[in-house]
Protein backbone atom coordinates (compact mmCIF):
# COMPACT_ATOMS: atom_id res chain seq x y z
CA UNK A 1 0.00 0.00 0.00
CA UNK A 2 1.37 3.38 -0.96
CA UNK A 3 1.95 6.09 1.59
CA UNK A 4 -0.61 8.26 -0.14
CA UNK A 5 -3.30 5.57 0.08
CA UNK A 6 -2.45 4.92 3.72
CA UNK A 7 -2.73 8.63 4.50
CA UNK A 8 -6.12 8.77 2.73
CA UNK A 9 -7.44 5.81 4.73
CA UNK A 10 -6.16 7.30 8.01
CA UNK A 11 -7.76 10.61 7.16
CA UNK A 12 -11.12 8.87 6.65
CA UNK A 13 -10.60 6.91 9.84
CA UNK A 14 -9.94 10.10 11.81
CA UNK A 15 -12.49 12.26 10.03
CA UNK A 16 -15.56 10.28 11.04
CA UNK A 17 -15.04 10.48 14.84
CA UNK A 18 -14.07 14.12 14.49
CA UNK A 19 -17.28 14.90 12.62
CA UNK A 20 -19.29 13.00 15.22
CA UNK A 21 -17.60 14.87 18.05
CA UNK A 22 -18.16 18.16 16.24
CA UNK A 23 -21.85 17.42 15.86
CA UNK A 24 -22.07 16.49 19.52
CA UNK A 25 -20.30 19.68 20.52
CA UNK A 26 -22.71 21.75 18.45
CA UNK A 27 -25.71 20.04 20.10
CA UNK A 28 -24.03 20.24 23.51
CA UNK A 29 -22.43 17.30 25.25
CA UNK A 30 -22.85 16.63 28.92
CA UNK A 31 -19.59 17.24 30.70
CA UNK A 32 -18.67 17.06 34.37
CA UNK A 33 -17.32 20.07 36.22
CA UNK A 34 -15.56 19.84 39.58
CA UNK A 35 -17.08 22.26 42.06
CA UNK A 36 -16.48 22.39 45.82
CA UNK A 37 -15.94 18.67 46.28
CA UNK A 38 -18.88 17.74 44.03
CA UNK A 39 -19.54 17.18 40.36
CA UNK A 40 -21.85 19.53 38.51
CA UNK A 41 -23.18 18.94 35.01
CA UNK A 42 -22.29 21.26 32.16
CA UNK A 43 -24.33 21.20 28.97
CA UNK A 44 -24.06 24.03 26.48
CA UNK A 45 -27.38 25.31 25.14
CA UNK A 46 -29.38 22.97 27.35
CA UNK A 47 -33.07 23.62 26.77
CA UNK A 48 -35.86 21.37 27.95
CA UNK A 49 -38.99 23.55 27.94
CA UNK A 50 -41.00 22.54 24.91
CA UNK A 51 -44.24 20.98 23.66
CA UNK A 52 -47.25 20.55 25.89
CA UNK A 53 -45.33 21.56 28.98
CA UNK A 54 -44.38 24.89 27.44
CA UNK A 55 -48.01 25.39 26.44
CA UNK A 56 -49.08 24.76 30.03
CA UNK A 57 -46.51 27.25 31.25
CA UNK A 58 -47.66 29.90 28.83
CA UNK A 59 -51.23 29.36 30.03
CA UNK A 60 -50.13 30.45 33.49
CA UNK A 61 -49.75 27.05 35.13
CA UNK A 62 -46.65 25.86 36.86
CA UNK A 63 -44.96 22.69 35.62
CA UNK A 64 -42.68 20.54 37.72
CA UNK A 65 -39.62 18.79 36.29
CA UNK A 66 -37.61 16.10 38.00
CA UNK A 67 -33.87 15.97 37.42
CA UNK A 68 -31.78 12.91 38.10
CA UNK A 69 -27.99 13.15 37.95
CA UNK A 70 -26.22 9.81 38.22
CA UNK A 71 -22.57 8.97 38.53
CA UNK A 72 -21.89 5.46 37.31
CA UNK A 73 -18.89 3.19 36.97
CA UNK A 74 -19.89 0.85 34.19
CA UNK A 75 -23.27 -0.54 35.21
CA UNK A 76 -22.67 0.25 38.90
CA UNK A 77 -24.35 3.30 40.41
CA UNK A 78 -21.83 5.32 42.45
CA UNK A 79 -23.84 8.40 43.41
CA UNK A 80 -27.21 9.83 42.57
CA UNK A 81 -28.84 13.19 43.05
CA UNK A 82 -32.57 13.86 42.58
CA UNK A 83 -34.07 17.32 42.40
CA UNK A 84 -37.44 18.80 41.53
CA UNK A 85 -37.75 22.20 39.89
CA UNK A 86 -41.07 23.97 39.50
CA UNK A 87 -41.22 26.40 36.62
CA UNK A 88 -43.78 29.07 35.92
CA UNK A 89 -44.19 31.76 33.31
CA UNK A 90 -44.83 35.34 34.32
CA UNK A 91 -47.81 36.46 32.23
CA UNK A 92 -47.10 40.14 32.58
CA UNK A 93 -43.30 40.20 32.38
CA UNK A 94 -43.17 37.33 29.87
CA UNK A 95 -40.25 35.55 31.44
CA UNK A 96 -39.78 32.45 33.57
CA UNK A 97 -39.38 31.76 37.26
CA UNK A 98 -37.92 28.58 38.75
CA UNK A 99 -38.23 27.19 42.27
CA UNK A 100 -36.02 24.34 43.42
CA UNK A 101 -37.98 22.32 45.96
CA UNK A 102 -36.40 21.05 49.10
CA UNK A 103 -36.40 17.39 50.05
CA UNK A 104 -35.86 18.13 53.73
CA UNK A 105 -37.72 21.32 54.58
CA UNK A 106 -40.94 23.00 53.48
CA UNK A 107 -39.19 26.12 52.19
CA UNK A 108 -37.81 26.08 48.65
CA UNK A 109 -34.08 25.51 48.43
CA UNK A 110 -33.53 28.15 45.76
CA UNK A 111 -35.65 30.37 43.55
CA UNK A 112 -35.12 32.74 40.68
CA UNK A 113 -37.29 34.93 38.47
CA UNK A 114 -36.93 37.00 35.29
CA UNK A 115 -35.21 34.22 33.32
CA UNK A 116 -35.36 34.03 29.57
CA UNK A 117 -36.41 30.70 28.06
CA UNK A 118 -32.82 29.87 27.10
CA UNK A 119 -31.51 30.52 30.60
CA UNK A 120 -33.86 28.19 32.47
CA UNK A 121 -31.95 25.02 31.66
CA UNK A 122 -28.62 26.47 32.66
CA UNK A 123 -30.00 27.70 36.00
CA UNK A 124 -31.36 24.25 36.80
CA UNK A 125 -28.05 22.61 35.95
CA UNK A 126 -26.21 25.06 38.16
CA UNK A 127 -28.27 23.77 41.06
CA UNK A 128 -27.49 20.10 40.50
CA UNK A 129 -24.57 18.40 42.28
CA UNK A 130 -23.35 14.87 42.86
CA UNK A 131 -21.15 14.50 45.97
CA UNK A 132 -17.90 12.67 45.25
CA UNK A 133 -16.11 12.75 48.60
CA UNK A 134 -15.84 8.96 48.88
CA UNK A 135 -15.31 8.25 45.19
CA UNK A 136 -12.08 6.79 43.82
CA UNK A 137 -10.55 9.54 41.64
CA UNK A 138 -8.67 7.15 39.38
CA UNK A 139 -11.66 5.14 38.19
CA UNK A 140 -13.36 5.78 34.89
CA UNK A 141 -16.82 7.19 35.50
CA UNK A 142 -19.76 8.46 33.50
CA UNK A 143 -22.33 11.10 34.29
CA UNK A 144 -26.00 10.65 33.23
CA UNK A 145 -28.58 13.40 33.31
CA UNK A 146 -32.26 12.52 33.08
CA UNK A 147 -35.04 15.10 33.00
CA UNK A 148 -38.75 14.27 33.22
CA UNK A 149 -41.81 16.43 33.41
CA UNK A 150 -44.25 15.64 36.17
CA UNK A 151 -47.74 14.83 34.83
CA UNK A 152 -50.41 17.22 36.02
CA UNK A 153 -52.60 14.38 37.27
CA UNK A 154 -50.05 12.98 39.71
CA UNK A 155 -50.63 13.72 43.39
CA UNK A 156 -49.66 17.35 43.39
CA UNK A 157 -46.14 17.79 44.76
CA UNK A 158 -46.81 21.46 45.30
CA UNK A 159 -49.55 20.98 47.84
CA UNK A 160 -47.16 20.92 50.71
CA UNK A 161 -45.93 24.25 49.36
CA UNK A 162 -42.31 23.84 48.59
CA UNK A 163 -41.32 20.40 49.86
CA UNK A 164 -41.02 17.22 47.86
CA UNK A 165 -40.99 13.59 48.86
CA UNK A 166 -37.69 11.93 47.93
CA UNK A 167 -39.29 8.49 47.78
CA UNK A 168 -41.77 9.91 45.27
CA UNK A 169 -38.91 11.12 43.08
CA UNK A 170 -37.20 7.74 43.17
CA UNK A 171 -40.47 6.07 42.15
CA UNK A 172 -40.91 8.49 39.24
CA UNK A 173 -37.49 7.69 37.78
CA UNK A 174 -38.03 3.96 38.12
CA UNK A 175 -41.07 3.81 35.83
CA UNK A 176 -41.31 4.38 32.08
CA UNK A 177 -42.43 7.77 30.79
CA UNK A 178 -46.15 8.18 30.22
CA UNK A 179 -47.63 9.49 26.97
CA UNK A 180 -47.19 13.25 26.70
CA UNK A 181 -44.57 13.31 29.42
CA UNK A 182 -41.29 15.02 28.58
CA UNK A 183 -38.22 12.82 29.01
CA UNK A 184 -34.62 13.49 28.10
CA UNK A 185 -31.54 11.41 28.89
CA UNK A 186 -27.98 12.37 28.05
CA UNK A 187 -24.63 10.85 29.06
CA UNK A 188 -21.17 12.27 29.34
CA UNK A 189 -18.10 10.68 27.80
CA UNK A 190 -16.14 8.54 30.28
CA UNK A 191 -13.87 10.61 32.59
CA UNK A 192 -11.78 10.39 35.75
CA UNK A 193 -12.47 12.66 38.71
CA UNK A 194 -8.75 13.30 39.20
CA UNK A 195 -8.42 14.80 35.74
CA UNK A 196 -11.62 16.82 36.07
CA UNK A 197 -10.52 18.23 39.45
CA UNK A 198 -7.08 19.08 38.05
CA UNK A 199 -8.73 20.97 35.17
CA UNK A 200 -10.88 22.88 37.66
CA UNK A 201 -7.89 24.15 39.68
CA UNK A 202 -5.81 24.96 36.56
CA UNK A 203 -5.56 28.78 36.20
Amino acid sequence: MSLHALAGKSAKFLLLPCLALGALAAAGVLAPAYLDGALAPRLEGFRFLEGKQLERLRSGQSVAYDFSLQLTEGPRLVQRSLERFVISYDLWEENFAVVQLNTAAPNPRAAVAHLKLEAVGEWCLQHLRVPIAATDRRRELQLTLEVRSVPGKLPNPLRSQGSVDLANLVEIFSRPAAAGEYRMVTRSLPFRIGATAAEAVRP
Binding site: A97, A113, Q161, G162
Partner: peptide, 9 residues
Amino acid sequence: LPASATNVN
Protein backbone atom coordinates in the same frame (compact mmCIF):
# COMPACT_ATOMS: atom_id res chain seq x y z
CA LEU B 1 -44.54 36.80 45.48
CA PRO B 2 -45.34 34.88 48.66
CA ALA B 3 -42.25 33.06 49.97
CA SER B 4 -43.79 29.60 49.58
CA ALA B 5 -45.30 30.17 46.10
CA THR B 6 -44.24 27.99 43.21
CA ASN B 7 -46.09 29.96 40.54
CA VAL B 8 -44.76 33.42 39.80
CA ASN B 9 -48.27 34.60 38.87
